[in-house]
Every structure is written in structure tokens, then in C-alpha cells.
Amino acid sequence: MKILVCISKSPDTTSKVAFTDGNTKFDENGVQYIVNPYDEWYALVRGLELKEANGGTVSIVTVGTNQDDAVIRKALAIGADDATRIDAEPTDAYFVAMQIAELAKEGSYDMILTGKETINYNGSQVGGMISEAIDLPFVSLASKMDVDGTKVTLETEIAGGVQVVEVQFPAVISCAKGMAEQRIPNMRGIMAARTKPLNVIAPTEVTPLTTYEGYTLPDAKSACKMIDPNNMDELVQLLHQEAKVI
């Protein structure tokens, strides 16, 4: 099996969210970058498990600048065989997906795995876009995946439940919680990652379809109104008359 896992970096989940340059840029001051949790915990680890069971390779790809090399090395330390970084600022999901599609066309992968979404832009866009660009089936938000020959059986989230679907290789799959358990890289993995191949390639020419013009932060919440635990009638009246939600 040849598996390609799409990895992006994202700010640590506890990062303070602030903006600079007249609210047009994310303020990276003091921000720690991690491998986007969905990409690492679910897509990459499930990919590695399938390789361990069936043989094959797990390659990773990132569209980003050399600032991303540290998170790529981390993904290699968890066990991926090699990495490709497409050397460009990931301006929008379409730009990213078209870059990865170019690589995927060359590589004849059985399976392309992405995370459910990036935790900064939450677009859930890149996987579906890759699949259309190379005309493959796309199973989105899979929480379970089993492979038997060239047949893949998956559980995916639907509103208020799950559904079970089947698809043939090759396919693009976005991975959500349930797929696998987080793996902590060990010392051997970290050492090995230093010498694994990280190929840097030039991007192809793509014009982004969307542009982020600026950001705003939500209005600060007004102070929380404390209610006496023995007076739930008061809470109900407030929810009815003041908040108008019941």
C-alpha cells in the first residue's frame, strides 16, 4: 500500500488568538506550532497502522515554508517514511489542494489521507478539493477504517449517528476522532527522523480563489450573572424574559 498523508501545522490548541498589522495577520508572538491534531492523531497514525498490517509506505506532504520543517520532522518521528514540502505560503485551501493534487498525480497512491479540518481555519476543504482535482472518490469525516485487499470499509459521522460505507482504492479520506489513538514519538523515532528524506519542491502556478482580508475578535462577554442555587425559578425567569431563549 502506498499512502500519502497531508500534514499541516497549526497553533497549539491553547494558543492565545490575536492579530497584528491592522488585524490582517495572525499574531505568532509566543505561539507554539504543532502538527494539526487531526492530521497527526488520526490520519497519520491510522496510515502507519495500515502500513504495519499490510506493508507499504507512508509519505507525508506539506504545503508550507521552511518554518514548517520542525512539524514535518515531528511527523517523521512518529513513523512516516519520507516527506515532501511544497515550498509556498499556503494562501487558501484551493491553492494547497492543487499543489497536493499535482504531487498525487505523479505518485499513484492507493490512499490519500487528510485530517478532518485544520484547527485554525476549520475549512474542511482541502481533502474534497484534492479528490475532485484527480477524480477520485472522497469519504469525508471517517471515524473508522478497515482495509481488505482493495476494498475499504469506513464509518463516517452523520447528523446524530454514523453510517457505514464501502469504497475501492484509490480514494481520498478525511479522518476524524475514533480513527486511531495518539502516538508519542520515542527517542529512536526522533533520531531516525533526522536522516529521513525531506524533499523540498517548487510549487506550481495556481491563483487562489479566496483571500482573507482581515480578522476580528468576538466582543468580550459581559460579566456572568450569578444565580442562587436555591432559586432556579429566578434562572428560568431570566432565561425567559431577559435572554428570551425559552
Partner: peptide, 23 residues
């Protein structure tokens, strides 16, 4: 922006070369 849209809208964006805003 439900689970069907999350799978279909990105594909449609590429097919139509139409910018997609999700959420």
C-alpha cells in the same frame, strides 16, 4: 454547512473554479 456540504462543496469548488467560503 452540514456533513454533506463538507464533502460536496470542496469538490464543486474545484469543478466550477468557484471560491468556497465554509462556515
Amino acid at each position: 454547512h452540514d456533513l454533506v456540504a463538507k464533502a460536496v462543496a470542496p469538490r464543486l469548488s474545484v469543478r466550477l473554479k468557484a471560491g468556497l467560503i465554509s462556515g
